[in-house]
């Protein structure tokens, strides 16, 4: 056996799985949505001329963007605290951060149904305090959807950021202060740019995650806040309109791709040391 080929050979089983079960099917879905070209074009035109479809796409992008930004902010706060607190609190706090991540999306959406429902905890509280005199509809709004998604993804943000924040040398921060940077300056000019790789990795995972968060979208957004994953499922499994489902899938992949490229570009602007 040729030694040169050994490394490649070892990766062949995994490569084959990825190729046959991921790249080929997804590629096929994308290609089929365009083919044959004349009909594909017509299907896309029809799809986009439907105002509802445009609403759903824009809503999905908006919700995913808000979710990404909020999760990263929450995650940044928690991760910064974890990297700065005394060492003995580190592991408990990490467990606290990871634990929700390891429970399912359904459970976590369910928790917010208890809180935000018509007879939920928050409405009870508001009624008892006399702030409102009848329950406020909070479920199946963009508020409940974003809350559920941010809840889903904040742990992921924490994990992506703890690593990079840990990687910032204490001496670099000390040096910045000694050169005259005040605490705010150290944060904006040093910590934030150095955290960019983590923000990007987290951002990409959260954004794509939001595009796939079916359970959360279904339970906390419902039909009124339909986003692309719920719409795709609806088309594919309820009305069996696989053509439209394929178009939605393609749009989702394109949106993901654009988001990844945009974030990479953003990263290099704020931190030229970001690789790739």
């Amino acid at each position: 056996m040729n030694r040169k080929w050994l490394p490649l050979l070892l990766t062949v089983p995994a490569l084959a799985l990825i190729l046959f079960l991921l790249i080929y099917p997804v590629g096929d879905t994308l290609a089929e949505s365009f083919l044959p070209l004349d009909q594909g074009w017509q299907r896309y035109v029809a799809f986009f001329s439907e105002p509802y479809n445009r609403t759903v796409i824009l809503r999905t992008i908006k919700i995913a963007t808000i979710t990404t930004v909020l999760s990263l902010i929450f995650g940044f706060i928690a991760a910064l605290f974890i990297t700065r607190c005394p060492a003995k609190y580190r592991t408990p706090l990490l467990i606290l951060s990871v634990f929700p991540l390891l429970t399912g999306a359904v459970v976590r959406a369910f928790a917010w149904m208890i809180i935000l429902g018509r007879k939920g905890l928050l409405n009870n509280l508001l009624l008892n305090l006399g702030i409102v005199d009848q329950p406020v509809p909070m479920l199946f709004t963009s508020f409940s959807l974003v809350t559920g998604l941010v809840y889903l993804f904040t742990p992921l943000a924490i994990l992506s950021l703890v690593g990079v924040l840990d990687g910032i040398e204490k001496d670099v921060l000390d040096a910045s202060s000694s050169l005259g940077a005040n605490p705010l300056g150290v944060f904006t000019q040093v910590i934030l740019p150095l955290a960019v790789p983590g923000l990007i990795v987290g951002g990409v995972l959260i954004f794509t995650g939001s595009l796939a968060a079916f359970a959360t979208a279904r339970l906390l957004g419902g039909d009124r806040q339909a986003i692309m994953p719920t719409q795709l499922y609806e088309k594919a499994m309820v009305s069996f309109d696989w053509n439209t489902a394929g178009i939605i899938a393609t749009v989702m992949v394109l949106v993901t791709l654009v988001a990844i490229l945009a974030m990479g570009k953003l990263a290099r602007r704020f931190n030229p040391a970001t690789g790739g």
């Binding site: 040398e169 001496d171 670099v172 000390d174 040096a175 910045s176 202060s177 000694s178 050169l179 005259g180 940077a181 005040n182 605490p183 300056g185 040093v190 740019p193 150095l194 960019v196 704020f270 931190n271 030229p272 040391a273």
Partner: peptide, 18 residues
């Protein structure tokens, strides 16, 4: 620290990597 106006050269240089 940031108001002391002292120039420090650190052991591991502590250059800002970005």
């Amino acid at each position: 620290v940031h108001k002391r106006n002292i120039g420090i050269v650190f052991q591991n240089y502590a250059l800002l990597p970005h």
